[in-house]
Design a protein around this nucleic acid. Structure first.
Lengths: 224, 224
DNA sequence: CTCCTGTATTTTGTATACATTCTATGATAT
DNA sequence: ATATCATAGAATGTATACAAAATACAGGAG
């Protein structure tokens, strides 16, 4: 277990939320590894709080699929097998297609403008070589689409699904030979939404997710 | 607030799970109404346990979208507007279509047999006039399909989405003039899966969900 | 009469103590 | 040597006590 854990005492949130954010970050960054046990007493002493907020934070992590608890055995960081990854990406594909289809129906000049700016910012990031920045701007591009879909529950689910793959995503964005393809796909999506060509745009988003799946699988295989 | 609440002391589960199931039932049955506050002390004394398992159960209800908490204000039973309903059904349509498509790919003789039996049981229930039984066998029919999709996360999400509409579903199954249509749709789905005709089967499931949406909206409008 | 403010009460947040269950270790019997 | 059981330690489950925040209400000022 990492010893980096430290609370960011932003003071106004309930401790359970602070603990939740802290543990979430640690899991996504890989400081807490898949399968690692989340022991209440240990975490409590490391973070300087009692077990109560730790327990509640763990329940919240479960909610996001980042932890799994076994009754009377305790909790551990969720593992993710290749099959799990495939399952998640199958769902993501369906929901991403839904989202972009809805966004297409609702598209306005203003949102299109926002999307264009987000697209440009992504392209700039890829040239800067800053991987974290690239991941961020890519997320923002898709976020514009999600918002346009006007379905908060859908947005929530998509963000959740994305989060579960965060580690692998960052890893795969380190291959800068994927950038040209991503840029092209973003441009096609933008163009499709501009033309209100729903069918095309749904198709491209489908490819977009499938490509991610292929890349992520490559990474997993390399790691073995 | 209802005073029907009582624990089903099945003894071997942690109290938080027992409390969770109790509150979940109460919400789905409508004994705890949307917007009603979930006060820890009150619930604790009514159920004869301390606040600790109540708090954890509430976190679990949040996880299923059945409760919403406001920091330092407490939790309440989740409200569901017509827009929320539409949002949920949009997602359900996409995921139900995905599930049936996957089920189609994976279909075996044995599963087809199971599906056939489930279909027959549903038809028998509609004739019996027992609404709860009908809701149950309908669920079982779809459950067979979900299992065949071989994607546990997807199954989980679909069960969750279904749960959020439980109250309205029971209400709409009270109109027995919808039974012929449901029976016909089930038969078409069964036939499609037998023929491995993915396209048709996805289309029918789409209609199936849209029909539900129309019915549920009617019920909401009548209630006003 | 209305609005503000201060106080009492209620409710949630957190810590801690005690109970129960699980797990690992080692001793004993076969 | 292996298997089984007993026991000690450690971890989770639950209750309770105390702290802090939110709410309700009453009294007084304008």
């Amino acid at each position: 277990m990492t010893d980096k854990l430290e609370l960011n005492m932003n003071a106004f949130l309930p401790l359970r939320d602070v603990v939740f954010h802290t543990l979430r970050e640690a899991i996504l960054k890989g400081e807490l590894k898949p399968g690692e046990r989340l022991m209440e007493l240990q975490l409590a002493s490391k973070l300087g709080v009692s077990r109560t907020p730790i327990r509640e934070a763990i329940r919240m992590l479960e909610l996001e699929g980042l932890a799994v608890t076994f009754p009377r055995k305790g909790a551990e960081v969720a593992k993710m097998t290749e099959k799990d990854m495939e399952d998640v990406l199958q769902i993501r594909r369906a929901l991403d297609e839904l989202a972009v289809g809805l966004a297409c129906d609702n598209m306005t000049e203003e949102k299109l403008e926002q999307l264009y700016k987000a697209m440009i910012r992504f392209e700039e990031s890829t040239r800067s070589g800053d991987v974290k920045q690239t991941a961020q701007t890519d997320m923002e591009f898709h976020e514009v689409i999600y918002q346009a879909a006007d379905n908060p529950k859908l947005v929530n689910m998509l963000n959740n699904l994305r989060e579960q793959m965060y580690r692998y995503r960052v890893e795969y964005l380190k291959n800068d030979d994927v950038y040209p393809r991503l840029i092209e796909e973003h441009q096609k999506i933008y163009e499709g939404l501009k033309q209100k060509d729903k069918e095309t745009v749904v198709e491209i988003v489908g490819y977009h997710v499938v490509n991610q799946e292929i890349m992520v699988k490559n990474i997993i295989h390399k790691q073995e």
